[in-house]
């Protein structure tokens, strides 16, 4: 009989402890990093790394250096997601060198403040959504 009682007490103690633990554990601890700014790591180099031929490499390198040294110094001027430069390199990959470049030139003329009503809005990037189709 005593054994049963002891086991009962132990079990209730354990369950009480887990109860307390669950109470305390999570909801305040989530505040620890609440003010830490979300850093977005950008990786622009994979077009260079994945290049299959010299021409791909050149376009990849152009894209990488534009993104790193020029675009990074610009204001947020492109109204689209993906941005014009990303669109250009994706367009070249999907449509080939000639049609891809032509398509990218067209994108540049579409990128202006009055583009609003013609494109869906992408909540995440807070830009107009216009992927290469």
């Amino acid at each position: 009989m005593r054994k049963v009682k002891t086991i009962g007490i132990v079990i209730s103690f354990i369950s009480f402890a887990t109860f307390l633990g669950a109470q305390d554990r999570s909801y305040l601890s989530s505040l620890e990093n609440t003010f830490t700014p979300q850093m977005h790591e950008h990786h622009y180099s994979h077009y260079v790394k994945d290049a299959k031929n010299p021409l791909d490499f050149i376009f990849g390198a152009l894209y990488l250096s534009y993104k790193t040294f020029i675009s990074s110094q610009d204001m947020e001027s492109c109204v689209f997601h993906p941005s014009c430069s990303t669109y250009a390199i994706e367009s070249i990959q999907k449509k080939g060198y000639i049609l891809g470049v032509i398509n990218a030139f067209d994108r540049l003329t579409r990128c202006h403040p009055f583009a609003g009503p013609n494109y869906p809005y992408d909540e995440k990037s807070q830009r107009l959504y216009d992927p290469v189709d």
Binding site: F35, T36, P37, S72, Q73, D74
Partner: peptide
Amino acid sequence: QRYYTGGYTNAKKIAFAKREANRA
């Protein structure tokens, strides 16, 4: 003009992010 404006706007943003990190 474009990269001049971009420069000082960016400077403000960078400072803001650094300050946020310090506060965090």
